[in-house]
Simulated assay, not measured.
Amino acid sequence: MAAAKNPGGIEALIFDMDGTMIDSMGYHAQSWALFADQHGLHIEIDDLMRRTTGRTGAECMRELFQRDLANDEACALIAQKEQLYRELFGPVFAEVAGFKSFYAQALARDLKLGVGTAGDQHNIAFAMSHLQLAPLPKAIVGGDEGHPGKPEPAIFLEVARQMNASAAGCIVFEDAPFGIEAARRAGMQAVAICSTHTPAQLAGPHVIATVRDYHELLNSNFLETLHVATS
């Protein structure tokens, strides 16, 4: 784990979902490949993932088809692709190692917990039904609510707004370069979860820790190093 700074006055933790809370990115890649094949598209999956991870479903479809899709058409295509993803991942659903334990310990330290994801409401409901978090995050903002996708900061800023937390008082947990950049643009610190990318790909001056999974954070007493803001 990278040496962590000592952020002060932390109010809230904001988690990306895919690849950060749940170990889903390989199944997203598989579903993109199946979806592209069904539509007669020849794509390089790694390149598509690099260009789209963290962007909203509509943004992804416009990137894939390389044309300006109407919202209704984009939504219909998104529904097809994400149904494939859920069918693939559902039978083998898994969290990123240690996430639920970390979530519970963060709650016990009176931190506000939120989710900011490019995933749509169907994928959010799918993830939450499998994770069975209790209680649910204080705020959940998805990619189908009208906000631009990452690396724009809007999704994270909306999560903070709904939790009544300052940007400077939030730490974002992210597994993708666009998400790490979105945290920087939002004025938030970040923890890089290297489930899908290397530490070098997730580097930044605002990144206070770099880990493979949440067990590393728990074993390093990361939460205990935070100065949690008091109301």
Rank of each mutant, 00 (worst) to 15 (best):
M1D: 03
N6Q: 14
G8W: 01
G8A: 15
G9P: 10
G9I: 14
I10Y: 09
A12Y: 01
A12K: 01
L13G: 06
I14M: 08
F15V: 12
D18F: 02
T20M: 10
D23Q: 09
D23C: 07
G26M: 05
Y27E: 03
H28F: 01
H28E: 00
Q30R: 13
S31Q: 06
S31P: 02
A33G: 10
L34E: 15
F35K: 06
F35D: 01
G40R: 09
G40Q: 11
L41K: 15
H42Q: 15
H42L: 12
H42C: 11
E44L: 07
D46K: 12
D47E: 11
D47Y: 01
L48S: 03
R50E: 04
R50S: 06
R50P: 00
T52V: 10
A58P: 09
C60G: 07
M61S: 07
E63G: 03
L64K: 04
R67A: 04
N71F: 12
D72W: 05
D72I: 12
D72Q: 14
E73P: 05
A74C: 11
A74I: 11
C75V: 11
A76Y: 02
L77M: 14
E82P: 00
E87T: 13
L88E: 07
F89C: 06
F89I: 08
V96F: 04
A97P: 09
G98S: 12
G98P: 06
F99K: 14
F99A: 14
F99D: 13
K100E: 12
F102L: 12
L107V: 03
L107A: 12
A108S: 09
D110Q: 15
K112Y: 02
A118V: 03
G119E: 01
Q121Y: 01
Q121E: 10
I124W: 01
I124R: 02
A127Q: 03
M128S: 02
H130M: 07
H130I: 03
Q132R: 13
L133N: 06
L133Y: 07
A134R: 14
A134P: 00
P137T: 03
I140P: 00
V141N: 09
G142F: 00
G143Y: 04
D144E: 03
D144F: 00
G149F: 07
E152W: 02
P153G: 09
A154G: 02
I155F: 07
F156R: 11
F156M: 13
E158K: 14
R161I: 03
R161T: 08
Q162I: 07
M163S: 02
A165Q: 00
A167M: 10
A167F: 06
A168T: 14
E174C: 11
D175I: 04
D175T: 05
P177V: 13
P177Y: 10
A183V: 10
R184P: 00
R184Q: 14
M188P: 04
A190G: 12
A190P: 08
V191T: 08
A192N: 11
I193Y: 05
C194L: 07
L202Q: 14
G204C: 13
P205A: 15
H206C: 08
V207E: 05
I208L: 09
A209F: 01
V211H: 02
V211F: 04
R212K: 15
D213I: 12
E216H: 08
L218A: 13
L218G: 06
N219L: 10
S220Q: 02
S220A: 06
N221Y: 03
H227L: 13
A229P: 04
